[in-house]
Design a protein around this nucleic acid. Structure first.
Lengths: 152, 152
DNA sequence: TCCATTTGTTTTAAATTTGAAATATATCAA
DNA sequence: TTGATATATTTCAAATTTAAAACAAATGGA
């Protein structure tokens, strides 16, 4: 723990928290990334499949919010998933600008198979914290994340 | 909060925590990234300057650990900082394979100038949490990060 | 000494990500 | 209806990131 006051007590506390947030995320992300690569998917691809599997068909724009990936990038990710026969683009509804993406049969099967294993993996590595600690961490992260969202 | 048990209680809790960790990191990272861009630096460049400013001269390999950037990438970052006259590479010590990087006068001045502002910025956005919450969050993130490190 | 192995850094090519146009369609007010 | 503005998606070029190969130097055992 940093004890020297370099930038004042408040700033030191905030900087220290930010470093720990970045490190915890980075390490967790690397571990899950390896797990996902083991299924032959990239992380953004997995994110799109996950959103579709859990939330149902959605418009391209929906992925930007859900997977936190930036606009033009989703196009490529969906292109590649479509090429692999996992998702399909359909025009539906009255707004012809929007495109709905949905899982194919193959995509649905893959999702169910993979995500169960992935959930077990995430659960396993998270067990370095007790369930109570996980609940407390979730609560604080949620407050931080949603509060910051308003500053964007 | 997710209340439906999709993958079992433990897995749902872990997945929920992981989503919140990713979102909080992403949002925080975007905000600090904008602040850093305002100083004319990229995030990896800022990370290298920060490491040098706080920890003193270090070898290339040191940045990989400190800034969590992957190997060959640091070379480019240091190249660009050197081009801008902010850091310099020196060979010193008895191992001629290693290269020590250190701040130039210009780099030191820039570091002191911008890091104070950056610290204030991080402190400001972190104030959405009380200091007690920040301490608690730090503690849990540290435990998570260091425990996961061992699984890599 | 010599050779094999290890370590530290750079180079290279491929993949990814971003942001800024470009395109197509919608909406709304005059 | 027209024109201006807004929204959804794609295209494109530039920057970034990664992993693997290449290179240089150090180490340690035969």
């Amino acid at each position: 723990m940093e004890t020297t006051k370099k930038y004042g007590e408040r700033a030191d506390l905030a900087l220290s928290m930010w470093v720990k947030l970045a490190r915890a995320f980075s390490t967790f992300n690397r571990l899950t990334g390896k797990d996902i690569a083991g299924y032959g998917l990239t992380q953004p691809q997995f994110g799109v499949l996950e959103a579709l599997g859990h939330l149902g068909p959605m418009k391209i724009g929906g992925f930007c919010e859900k997977t936190l990936a930036s606009g033009g990038n989703i196009t490529v990710v969906v292109d590649n998933l479509e090429r692999d026969g996992l998702v399909e683009r359909v025009r539906e509804g009255d707004d012809r600008r929007t495109i709905t993406v949905r899982l194919t049969k193959k995509g649905t099967d893959l999702f169910h198979d993979i995500f169960k294993k992935h959930a077990a993996f995430v659960s396993e590595i998270s067990s370095v914290l007790t369930r109570e600690e996980q609940r407390e961490l979730s609560k604080l992260l949620k407050k931080l994340g949603t509060s910051l969202q308003k500053k964007m």
